[in-house]
């Protein structure tokens, strides 16, 4: 009996060792520090086009410089049939400097026209969500909703910490337009 058991155990042991080796090899090959990028869905819109930083400044009720705190919740707009039609986010923003307008609270909420979800990033016209590392200047309008509206969507948010950044535009013209506006913005707005 003990001999029979010894004979059965060895093959199972070998199979088990092989399985562990394969799984370990596969796990080591995955770069866990850089997971594959999420798919980006960019909805197309007709939207106001701002030609220069003065138009942005003129249109904005509030211009602030500061940082995204990391507190972000999805905001899903639905139609009358409760079908989701737009995916956005309500993001908390800590103000370091008020350039235009007046506000008492240093922490405000802004509605970003994008949403980072488990399966993908949903954005309108390539708007890129703020990160917690960088400083931003925001051109904002008052809205009837839970946060401020960003003027012209991607045209009203600029990363002051980086000259180049990841962009989600699927159009070269939107990318060039944002870049040109950013040059003007960075020339004027500094913390």
């Amino acid at each position: 009996m003990s001999v029979y058991l010894k004979k059965i155990k060895r093959p199972y042991l070998i199979i088990a060792l092989l399985c562990v080796s394969v799984i370990s090899y596969w796990y080591i090959q995955i770069d866990h520090s850089n997971p594959p990028p999420k798919k980006v869905y960019s909805a197309n819109a007709d939207y106001p086009v701002l030609d220069n930083v003065y138009q942005l400044a003129d249109k904005a009720d509030l211009i602030v410089i500061g940082k995204f705190t990391g507190d972000r919740t999805p905001k899903i707009y639905t139609d009358e049939n409760n079908t989701p039609i737009i995916r956005a986010s309500i993001s908390s923003f800590k103000i370091n400097k008020v350039v235009k307008g007046s506000i008492n609270d240093k922490n405000i909420f802004v509605i970003e026209p994008a949403s980072d979800e488990d399966d993908a990033i949903y954005t309108i016209e390539g708007y890129n969500l703020m990160n917690t590392s960088d400083k931003y200047v925001l051109f904002l309008n008052n809205s009837d909703e839970e946060g401020y509206r960003i003027v012209g969507m991607y045209q009203g948010q600029y990363n002051l910490s980086k000259d180049s950044e990841t962009v989600l535009f699927d159009s070269k013209d939107s990318k060039d337009h944002h870049k040109e506006l950013k040059q003007q913005v960075k020339g004027i707005y500094k913390d």
Binding site: Y41, A43, P48, I86, E125, M153, G156
Partner: peptide, 10 residues
Amino acid sequence: SGLDFFAITQ
């Protein structure tokens, strides 16, 4: 009023 677009298609 929270998002600055005129209309959107998806």
